[in-house]
């Protein structure tokens, strides 16, 4: 059984059909990429999975649960975490605080227990910081943990957003154009990180990315969207040879860099 199964998803905004009958399955432990030209509907797929948008038709199964109609916070609780195309960090908070918010669903203190700083809350807070430190080690963010997010360069912010998502210990991580705005070295580091998220942390990755080198280098499987419709799905090799894909990208070369 696939970890995530998107079946016949359709949504429209006013007159615009942003997704039409879109289906794909993401297998556990794989890196699955969703590609397509601007406006193809990739981010919209993420937003529907998250429960931010409601699909007109279709169904989404995640880990055996129908999440089609769940509210965003309940989808998160089931093990779905994501990053955003235009970074959505808590910019007035420090890197550490962002990652602590990422752990929200795994912590339990409330107004009263937190306000009275009960023993178990102290223990929980301490543990949360230790976990955060592990994530910082993993992503190479240790030097930045006390920095305000707004003071950090874009490349680091991208990683902070990944750190926050990983803090939720998700089963699947949705990455929306993580290489956007990164220089070649940063992109290289990012690729290694995504590979390690899958291999070391055993987290399934659903990736949206325009950088074809990243997509072809990382993906186990690729699904191509064009004006809201799926036009191809297959391995990187299959996708590169697919006539409709090269056509859809209108001259944009789809090749392994």
């Amino acid at each position: 059984m696939p970890l995530l199964s998107v079946a016949k998803l359709s949504i429209h905004f006013g007159g615009l059909a942003a997704l039409i009958n879109c289906s794909f399955d993401v297998e556990q432990g794989k890196i699955f990429s969703l590609i397509g030209p601007n406006g193809a509907g990739k981010t919209t797929v993420f937003n529907i999975i998250n429960g931010i948008y409601k699909a007109d038709r279709g169904k989404i199964l995640f880990d055996g649960t129908d999440i089609t109609h769940l509210a965003p916070h309940n989808v998160a609780r089931l093990g779905v975490a994501r990053t955003f195309q235009n970074i959505e960090l808590f910019s007035k908070m420090t890197v550490l605080e962002n990652v602590l918010v990422g752990q929200h669903i795994h912590l339990c203190s409330g107004i009263l227990s937190g306000g009275l700083l009960l023993g178990r809350v102290r223990a929980e807070e301490k543990l949360a910081r230790e976990e955060a430190n592990n994530i910082f080690d993993f992503l190479g963010l240790t030097d930045y943990r006390s920095h305000l997010v707004s003071d950090l360069p874009h490349g680091i912010q991208t990683r902070v957003e990944m750190a926050r998502a990983l803090a939720a210990k998700p089963k699947i991580l949705l990455l929306d154009e993580p290489a956007g705005g990164l220089n070649p070295q940063e992109t290289q580091v990012l690729m290694q990180l995504i590979e390690r998220i899958r291999s070391d942390l055993k987290i399934t990755v659903l990736l949206v990315e325009h950088d074809m080198a990243v997509v072809m280098g990382l993906s186990d499987r690729i699904c191509v969207l064009h004006f809201g419709q799926k036009i191809a799905e297959g391995s990187p090799g299959e996708i590169q040879k697919h006539p409709r894909v090269t056509e859809a990208y209108l001259g944009e070369t789809v090749e392994h860099a």
Partner: peptide
Amino acid sequence: TRVGRAFRAIEQSEIASETMGID
């Protein structure tokens, strides 16, 4: 602690907050 961080998170990005599991 947790509740206060959730408050501040909401102030800064509702969309990020809810996708991190904050109701």
